[in-house]
Design a protein around this nucleic acid. Sequence first.
DNA 1: CCAAAAGTGTTGGCTCTACACCCATGA
DNA 2: TCATGGGTGTAGAGCCAACACTTTTGG
Lengths: 234, 234
Amino acid sequence: MTRGAGRLRTAATTRLSRDARPRVAVDTILFAFRDHQLQCYLVELARGEAAGQWAFPGRLVRIGEKLDEAARADLAASTGLRDVYLEQLFTFGDPTRDPRTHVVSVAYMGLTAAPETVSACSAKYAQGRWCGVERLPRLAYDHPQMADYALNRLRAKLEYTNIALYLLPPAFTFAQLEELYATVLERELDRRNFRRRILASGLLRRLSQERRGAHRPAALYEFAPRSLRTIEML
Amino acid sequence: MTRGAGRLRTAATTRLSRDARPRVAVDTILFAFRDHQLQCYLVELARGEAAGQWAFPGRLVRIGEKLDEAARADLAASTGLRDVYLEQLFTFGDPTRDPRTHVVSVAYMGLTAAPETVSACSAKYAQGRWCGVERLPRLAYDHPQMADYALNRLRAKLEYTNIALYLLPPAFTFAQLEELYATVLERELDRRNFRRRILASGLLRRLSQERRGAHRPAALYEFAPRSLRTIEML
DNA sequence: CCAAAAGTGTTGGCTCTACACCCATGA
DNA sequence: TCATGGGTGTAGAGCCAACACTTTTGG
């Protein structure tokens, strides 16, 4: 999001002195795989010109803050989530992207495996909600571009890294993994070929437990190194 | 580079009021293929705490400026070059990266096919020079990280795009193209396989002229679309 | 005619894709 | 016993890597 401080400014001089340099913000596109969909977290802006519009959570960066720490702290404030995978995406600097003032925004992609633990949103926003990436409402500012950029990055990284580990619970079945891939990449995958390739990458470890349910039990797996690895997945 | 405004500040209050927010800068790692090496353009800082150290050209972004326009304008001012391919790399925001003040720097990679046309460097710097990427001097600030990042990006993009077009003259031989790839990727390439793959990508057009020299003449080629295309090259 | 760089094809191995049936369980 | 989702193997095609000799020119 881009700031709406909400404070009125009365004169151009005020604006000029306050705006001597562009400001720096971070905005985070937080993804989760929920309800058989890739979803992202939206907040409804409560203040400023864009009040009532939906956007991604974010805020200005303060003096002395690292960018990723600002993004992480803001995400904790907006969603209550603490363990989020964060990756810098791109910096959007068009001076007109926020009609009020020149804000340069560093966009981050966030991934969480625990979307249900999101708590009441910060007072800064009217509300927050998860929304399927196929059904996004009109977003404020240049946030539609950010959404595109984040989605492309996530799709690309599914193909050559084990980034899916940040979207899945610690133990999961092959069916879950395959559904994640098929959904995000929007294409069907051959179950046998998918299995073979993923196993060949050596990044999964089979657990001794199984998931029991209405039907035949399914073997559970975990990601073996729990950190990002670059390797051909597809 | 990160700014050294050179102006002295006398009191913490001055610093605080001036530094109410982080500043935004752009820095550009400009590459060229010159003298059988991949080289990048360095400037010697003339002012500020880092005076005497080498760095990449850059400057603060002004209100109302787009990031890439700021990078382009600064490159024109520092090198005289106007037609440079620019691509945003990463934003470095560690508050301690510039010991003086909190500057968030958006790093760009620049590519030029005409490194010889670089003109006298701007008054802002003591001097400027091309330097092989294997023999970089100690660089100011976090510019060594920027250099790594840029080099990795260039290497990656050689493998899946036609980005080499921005490093080569309009007409070139296969030997030149292969030398560029082999040098930047630091590995030998099989001439026949390389030829076949590049031609199969359909991104080269053979020209009717040949380059004549001391030995057997070599066919000249040009990049057919003169814009970036994503396609498997290697 | 010699040195130097340009140009050219084939084969074997491997990888990838396409494809269909049986299994284990709970209800 | 049935419905549901879980689990498995093979064959043919296409792709990729490895490999060495001939051609053209200027000196």
